[in-house]
Design a protein around this nucleic acid. Structure first.
Lengths: 130, 130, 130, 130
DNA sequence: GTGGTCTAGACCACT
DNA sequence: GTGGTCTAGACCACA
């Protein structure tokens, strides 16, 4: 189960925030394979967003085989996809990092501080998983 | 001097790619305080984008006091801002990291891979600076 | 709500006139935190300027954290920033005043006339706020 | 005699900064009617700006009858113009004030603080004149 | 319907 | 030749 949460001020599209939280929930172990997600309607009410917004998020994850919908029963976590390690994929990582560094440098943080912060989070995540 | 480069397929707005590269150039030491940037026209031609797009990028950085433009003279790297270290600031780092982790995990990358990638960039910058 | 108004003969850029009026609206209490501004299209039509011009004005204020835009939703007044009171800040006020005095004196106005005019504006704002 | 001074970071055009300083010098009593100004060449060297820039400033003030040039002898302060108090003029004051308030509010200052600062400057100016 | 981005092309202001 | 502004019109992303 996830504690969903939308931040309207982050600039990240609502539907994408939902997508990200589900993906993160899975990769962090908070969401298990086969587990049922809240209904579109329930989540929309909870997050105070439009029904279409939640629907869009679920649909995107279905297309990517992260979720599985069964008519009349609900939406469930699918089995984890096999990781394909193409150069295109590695470049994606680089480009995300580059953009990210731009953001943190606009706040005056250094790469070192960033790595330190990420390491803290890494440790925290591991302890949660055990 | 920077080797500017636009990737039209990345989905990132052109003007933002320019902003990112300038920010990255400054934080990595490739661009020095007072250094002149290419003219808006020259960069527009080089990147094969419209003049306004470059102008928009320069303008954004000028508002944020990263660049300084003088009509009739050119655009230059401004002096770096003084770092104010409040708890609010540290929290900002956490929230950015958190959002960022959500993005990378949605692509299936782990925190470890991310940190490795960032360390590479850090080393690269340092060797460039010397 | 503001009664927007563009003076094409003032020499001040259109987008800047919009920026000024929004800023003034906020500091005078005419615009409240969270309040929605006219849509870019609506304001463009009303002022008979191009959509991009309004967009540019909104964007500038968004970069400065004065406004918050949500794609698909609208543009809203953001919360005011926390005031940091350094000596550097006080000096900034002096330098702005100095530059300003230079401008008004170039039109033949005296400091006294200026202060009178500012006081009128101050009073006007207070009565509007009640 | 004036201590001329150009601030490239202020955003105000160089030639306008010169114009403003001369006008302010006159209205504050630092420059007296008939007094000779530095030659175009001398001022250009002193301020490290282009010769054309100083020339443009002097020419603008000549047109407005603030300065008088005598070929071969130099440039002098002319007699003060008669103040014409049209409504157009009063509106100009209002529009300058409005723009100015926008600037100070972008730094988080209030009208009250501004008026206080201006009053201080008023007193200072008067004591200088006596 | 909302904001975001981009182009092509024009004209202006400043150095 | 430098940056600054504006228009008209197009297409995209989001709620």
């Amino acid at each position: 189960m996830i504690n969903f949460n939308i931040d309207p001020r982050s600039g990240v599209p609502f539907y994408k925030q939902i997508v990200d939280q589900i993906r993160f929930g899975i990769s962090s172990g908070m969401l298990q394979v086969g587990e049922q997600l809240p209904t579109v309607r329930a989540l929309a009410v909870q997050l105070k967003v439009n029904l279409n917004t939640v629907s869009k998020a679920y649909k995107e994850l279905e297309i990517q085989n992260v979720l599985e919908s069964q008519q009349g029963t609900g939406t469930f976590i699918g089995s984890p996809p096999i990781r394909v390690d193409t150069t295109e994929f590695r470049n994606k990582l680089k480009s995300i990092c580059s953009e990210f560094l731009s953001v943190i440098s606009s706040y005056g943080f250094t790469i070192e501080e960033l790595i330190d912060e990420l390491k803290k989070m890494e440790v925290k995540n591991e302890s949660q998983r055990n």
